[in-house]
Design a protein around this nucleic acid. Structure first.
Length: 498
RNA sequence: GCCCCCAUCGUCUAGUGGCCUAGGACGCCGCCCUCUCACGGCGGUAGCGCGGGUUCGAAUCCCGCUGGGGGUACCA
């Protein structure tokens, strides 16, 4: 029985991050899998902050964890949520457990330093050799407390994901459970807290698998019934190495800052190592929770594919009602993300283009590049686009377009017809004819539907931009001529007129 | 070194002995739609690491190999 029968005590899972400052996407997935298990089994999700290492302990980091979890939908407001507890606050219980283990003869004091051990064994990478096992050392400052592991037999562990791994006890060294200053070490503190919080299922990353036999031995030594374990596959980068803070982009907040919607992130993360079945992928959180089964989690490592994450995000963005999309974009429409002055920004104009932009952004941060020409005094001219669109004939075309724009009815459909007609005069289809206009006005060769954009920009600003483009075209034509007259062929014309 | 985990398209996965001529999604390619780009629609590309077994039958079970990964602290 891996899960309790109906009517028996509810399961209790936990998520136990150490506050390191960033909320890792791997941690996010662990939290999500724990949360899904608890919710779906009618159990409890305990949050425990493992703050025993002073160097990994800043009060504000805890707020970061809480808010990141909140963004993922794991909220204190839910009755499933319990905590947060702080590992440091349970130090007394952990020390008492260590003393009890010593009193019971299940642990002993040791004064071997690493250097002494290496010198004695002549082996740099050896585990502890048991030197102090029978020395009967009493507690004293500087002496570590070691757990006495069995010499024979094997430790069987129940793991929902890995089939049940077996560890020969002979390979388990007498590991330290309390430091020379009496403070408990992770292996012990973690178990004592789990026992204390009556955890029934430990769902965590695969990197903890080697700790499991040691911890299970500790559970037993403490007189508690060991939990059911579930070790999730590690999340890896393109080189198939565990995602690391150093080399990879792992902070959840960085993705949110790019404009990945929390719901998309949750959906994607849930699919890393697990699938809802039925060839379905994009599903609401509640549905994912409903279908989730720890037993169905894969055991092979999973690549964190930002492209697929982005694709999911695009789906979520497009599924948003326009007003929600508009609201979601808001942070990127102001300082420090927006390249325009706050005074130039017009929410009404943005609201008008939002539906056009919605299918064109995969991450929210892309929104500014789509609409910047509407709020900037002058468009940001992409030189590649300029060179591509402003070929021979462009100046003449632009001039003709300008002429009809002066008194055309300022409405998208009419503007389109106008440019179509001018284009025909030049033997160009609309697809070709619109290009110089687009670059003159928006600075780029690709973007939102042009005529709707012009309508929103207004006649005055549109004409000013066309004039500016015409001026630049004239200037570079002169330069080219001048260069010719001077006989200095091969000298490039200035790339930009301003 | 020692311990452990893992192995289906490039990637995430479905698949639990016959339903598999191996399904879906992302990516990529092509076509359609179209004022550009997207969106959308349609089509395509591509995979069971290798070798032995077991079985009437193996992607599915067993063993070995190879290849990846994780752990190995008085960090968590």
């Amino acid at each position: 029985m891996t899960f309790p029968a109906p009517g028996s005590a509810p399961i209790r899972v936990r998520f136990a991050p150490s506050p390191t400052g960033i909320f890792h996407v791997g941690g996010a997935r662990s939290a999500l899998f724990n949360w899904a298990t608890a919710k779906q089994q009618g159990g409890i999700f305990v949050l425990r902050i493992e703050d025993t290492d002073a160097s990994r302990n800043q009060p504000e980091w805890v707020d970061g964890i809480l808010s990141a979890m909140e963004a993922l939908g794991i909220t204190k407001a839910d009755a499933t949520f319990e905590g947060p507890y702080f590992q440091s606050e349970n130090a007394g219980v952990q020390r008492a457990a260590a003393e009890r283990l010593f009193a019971d003869g299940k642990a002993y004091y040791c004064d071997c330093t690493r250097d002494v051990l290496v010198a004695r064994t002549g082996n740099q990478q050896t585990g502890y050799d048991g030197f102090c096992r029978e020395r009967g050392l009493e507690h004293a400052e500087g002496r570590a407390l070691r757990f006495r592991t069995p010499d024979e037999g094997e430790t069987h562990v129940v793991d929902l994901i890995r089939g049940n791994p077996v560890f020969p006890n002979s390979t388990l060294e007498d590991f330290v459970i309390a430091r020379g200053d009496g403070s408990p070490v992770f292996l012990l503190a973690n178990v004592v807290d789990d026992v204390d919080e009556r955890i029934t299922h430990v769902v965590r990353g695969e990197e903890h698998l080697p700790n499991t036999p040691k911890q299970q031995l500790l559970w037993e030594a403490l007189g508690a019934t060991p939990p059911v374990w579930a070790h999730l596959p590690v999340i890896v980068n393109e080189k198939r190495q565990k995602l690391s803070k150093r080399r990879d982009k792992v902070a959840l907040e960085d993705y949110l800052a790019d404009g990945i919607l929390p719901a998309a992130m949750v959906n994607y993360l849930m699919l890393l190592g697990w699938a809802p079945g039925n060839d379905e992928e994009i599903l609401p959180f509640e549905e994912l929770i409903r279908r989730f089964r720890l037993e169905d989690v894969n055991s092979a490592s999973a690549f964190f594919d930002i492209k697929k994450l982005t694709a999911f995000n695009g789906e979520y963005i497009r599924a948003l009602p326009v007003d929600e999309f508009t609201a979601a974009c808001d942070p990127w429409l102001h300082a420090p993300f927006a390249p325009w002055d706050e005074a130039s920004y017009d929410p009404a104009v943005f609201a008008a283009v939002a539906p056009l932009a919605q299918t064109r952004v995969a991450v929210l941060s892309e929104i500014t590049a789509n609409v910047d020409f509407l709020f900037l005094d002058e468009p940001v001219v992409d030189e590649q686009s300029w060179n591509k669109a402003m070929k021979v004939g462009a100046a003449e075309l632009l001039a003709d377009v300008r002429a009809v724009l002066v008194d055309a009815a300022w409405e998208a459909e009419t503007l389109k017809d106008t440019v179509t007609v001018v284009g025909e005069k030049h033997g160009l289809k609309l697809g070709k004819a619109q290009a110089p206009v687009r670059v003159a006005v928006t600075g780029r060769t690709v973007g939102l539907p042009l005529f709707e954009s012009l309508e929103l920009l207004g006649r005055e600003r549109t004409l000013a931009r066309v004039d500016a483009a015409l001026a630049r075209l004239a200037a570079s034509a002169e330069t080219a001529e001048g260069a010719e007259t001077a006989g200095s062929a091969g000298v490039d014309a200035p790339a930009s007129a301003g």
